[in-house]
């Protein structure tokens, strides 16, 4: 019998969030949008967050160009599925994320490009959850990027195999907790 404990953090409310579209194109001239989300980080504790976005039932990849807190996590080269970060650089301060995204659907209406509103999820996660997600991103990348990020060329740039984090003493896997808030983004 093993006993594993983790603490579910208090949810952090989203203060403001919206999206704009279109706000750029990628190298294939496909239109990009931008999501913006703001929340206030509690000052008393070390906090960890995960932000992910969806359109319908599909994930959208968020590119947080130039965001200090997320760039400092050093995940961007590893094709993360979601943005996982700590409040180390903004403890107790308001936080704003601007991230571009590839819409999973869209079209034009009277010459105006449009896409369906994305849904954004902000999770306040435990430290164990944070460590698990960080190790998973590296672990998956160093396998050559399985799944929908599969890319053999990635093998040219990978490093040594990276073991998964576990809070199960003498075992593997994790027991972790999170509290989430989500919102469907209005267009601005």
């Amino acid at each position: 019998m093993r006993h594993i404990t983790d603490t579910v953090p208090v949810a952090v409310p989203i203060r403001d969030a919206w999206f704009s579209f279109p706000t750029g194109t990628d190298r294939n001239r496909e239109l990009l949008g931008t999501v913006v989300v703001r929340f206030d980080d509690p000052a008393a504790t070390a906090n960890y967050y995960e932000i992910s976005g969806y359109q319908e039932s599909q994930f959208i990849t968020l590119d947080p160009r130039g965001n200090a807190a997320i760039t400092a996590e050093d995940d961007s080269e590893l094709n993360p599925k979601s943005l996982v970060f700590s409040d180390k650089l903004f403890n107790g301060m308001p936080f704003e994320l601007r991230a571009s995204f590839h819409p999973t659907n869209g079209g034009t209406s009277n010459g105006v490009p449009f896409t369906r509103p994305p849904r954004l999820v902000l999770r306040a996660v435990s430290r164990a959850y944070y460590q698990y997600r960080k190790s998973w991103t590296r672990h998956l990348f160093n396998q050559g990027g399985k799944g929908d990020t599969y890319d053999l060329n990635q093998l040219l740039f990978l490093g040594d195999p990276s073991a998964m984090y576990s809070n199960v003493n003498g075992g593997y896997g994790v027991v972790v907790g999170y509290a989430s808030r989500s919102v469907t983004l209005p267009l601005r």
Partner: peptide, 27 residues
């Protein structure tokens, strides 16, 4: 391992499968 989970954040009629799994390796 659970690679991504929708949890309760998406309506159930949208998120049919709430958990996506991937293989983690033991070296």
């Amino acid at each position: 391992v659970v690679e991504q989970s929708y949890g309760q954040e998406l309506p159930s009629n949208v998120a049919k499968d709430r958990y996506f799994y991937q293989e983690a390796e033991l070296y």
